[in-house]
Amino acid sequence: MKTILGTAAMALTLAGGMAMAESHSTTVRMGTEGAYPPWNFINDSGEVDGFERELGDELCARAELTCEWVTNEWDSIIPNLTSGNYDTIIAGMSITDERDEVIDFTQPYTPPDPSFYAALSEDVDLTGGVIAAQTGTIQAGYVAESGATLVEFATPDETVAAVMNGEADAVLADASFIQGQVDANSDLMVVGDPVALGGGVGMGIRESDGELRETFDAAIQSMKDDGTLNELIEKWEVSTTW
């Protein structure tokens, strides 16, 4: 067992040495999913891109913070925030009471927006059929209570693929994401009535990190006040404007 301790000690000193060499400025690590266009996605150059990338960069500029972008699986995006691997979640996350018990949210940067169903034909049964949604989303919670059979997937991509290959009758997700998928795919169409869910999208921040939350709150407010936030929302077509 000496080897384990030895390796651990080595990793500790090694990483410590590397880290010590770096400068000590305020760097905020922005955690996102990178798989939810147009909110956030990895562009063809391999960088984080989308509405939230542009918004986050602007917020950091206004708050005079250096920001670093990190991608993380949606499934473990909250546990990795609370254990300190990054400092914010900016990943199209709707503000809900359930999440608010574990982490804090800034004020919303997009208003509450409807969710759309998408399917291959108009006559699918939305209340009794099989509906796909991403794990741990407000849409998954809604489908589970609607009486339909819920099938969950780890990524947004897979929820749409499930409809395309017949595994699910329809998919429920944010209107902007569904719209993008429907535009790119002639077989897919928006069906049923829009569903109003959630309390708007905000940045997730650790409960112990009150100061950072206030900083971003102020930056979001200033973008709301001078209209730049609405411009960004319109540019990326993510939701209705304020």
């Binding site: 990793a11 500790l12 090694l14 990483a15 410590g16 590397m18 880290a19 770096e22 400068s23 000590h24 400025s25 305020t26 760097t27 905020v28 690590r29 250096t66 670093e68 990190v70 609370t82 254990s83 300190g84 400092d87 574990v102 650790r206 409960e207 112990s208």
Partner: peptide, 30 residues
């Protein structure tokens, strides 16, 4: 603190100010 795991900034591994590659090397070593 609740579900948060909070250590002082100097104890972070790697430091949050470290460039992304340091974080990646650390993750890979783990």
């Amino acid at each position: 603190q609740g579900s948060d795991f909070v250590v002082c900034d100097a104890a972070k591994l790697p430091l949050s100010s470290s460039p992304q590659w340091v974080h990646e090397v650390y993750g890979f070593s783990l």
